[in-house]
Nucleic acid binder design. Sequence first.
DNA 1: CTTGGTGCAAACATTTTGCAGCACA
DNA 2: TGTGCTGCAAAATGTTTGCACCAAG
Lengths: 158, 158
Amino acid sequence: MPGSKSLTGSPSGLDDLTIIEPVCAIFRRTLKGAGLKYTLERAQILDSVMRQPGLFHAEELIRGLKAEGFRVSKATVYRTLKLMQDSGIIQRVLFDDDDAGRYQVVFGTSASDLLIRTDNGDAVQIEIPGLRALCEQLCTKHGLALKGHRLQVFAAPA
Amino acid sequence: MPGSKSLTGSPSGLDDLTIIEPVCAIFRRTLKGAGLKYTLERAQILDSVMRQPGLFHAEELIRGLKAEGFRVSKATVYRTLKLMQDSGIIQRVLFDDDDAGRYQVVFGTSASDLLIRTDNGDAVQIEIPGLRALCEQLCTKHGLALKGHRLQVFAAPA
DNA sequence: CTTGGTGCAAACATTTTGCAGCACA
DNA sequence: TGTGCTGCAAAATGTTTGCACCAAG
């Protein structure tokens, strides 16, 4: 079975990986909570997603999976990506010039800030320390509870 | 000619509207700079865009234009929206749950921050005073020049 | 045996493109 | 007369869905 070495937890049992792979645990818990199953395909896709460097397109992910010898259909990939969004593990990101949706791992609430080079499209994750507090304040002022945020900073070489 | 009363500047001459309608001026200047023309259709679309309350879908815009009696094809609308993006007048925004691209007027660099209710999709423009400075700092640290930013804050009723 | 999962292919929605004719410089 | 613009319809893209079969509890 190709590629089974690096799976982020196995579909049958093995809850002991929970501490090492919290994202996997989150995903499994969310699935279980919805009466859904943590299948081999979903494990493979999760694993591949977690190994993506920064942002990725669905298409890249599918190509990568096939290159590793997995036989997953794009339907399953899209279905699984949606489940991961619901679990708060990834989110979609849009760029003005880019028609296809890109995805980004955001497990938890950080890692949602990006510095994007407008000249070549490169994007790196950044950290703006005071930002979360600012968002918190803002929500309080509106009588709402903060669920998360997303920041994109566009820049080019000076 | 239906609806011609509220056009944001006329296609023939009338540069005196420049001060009153800076967005229109920006658009015209950008077009001229690229050897393109400020046509009646483009004026109509710009006008309609500027009258949109907050965020809008391309489809809504098209429907609105038709409702006002204009006969613009969606091809022209999409082409014009893209030109407006290039001019920095509008930008596309993506929401996780929303498949279609939405657009937002952002002439200049402010108005790019949104507070989005996760329970019903409502979005309002917000202002976070210190944010721009934070972005500026960040870019400087990376040896880049800030081109703009976009913040989405997700929240739900407490 | 019931519920959910998968792959495939067809369907879908949004956006883009090719083309013929039009308008203005 | 050339360059760009428009509408239409066709194409292309990215994503979703219907369906028949498979797998696990």
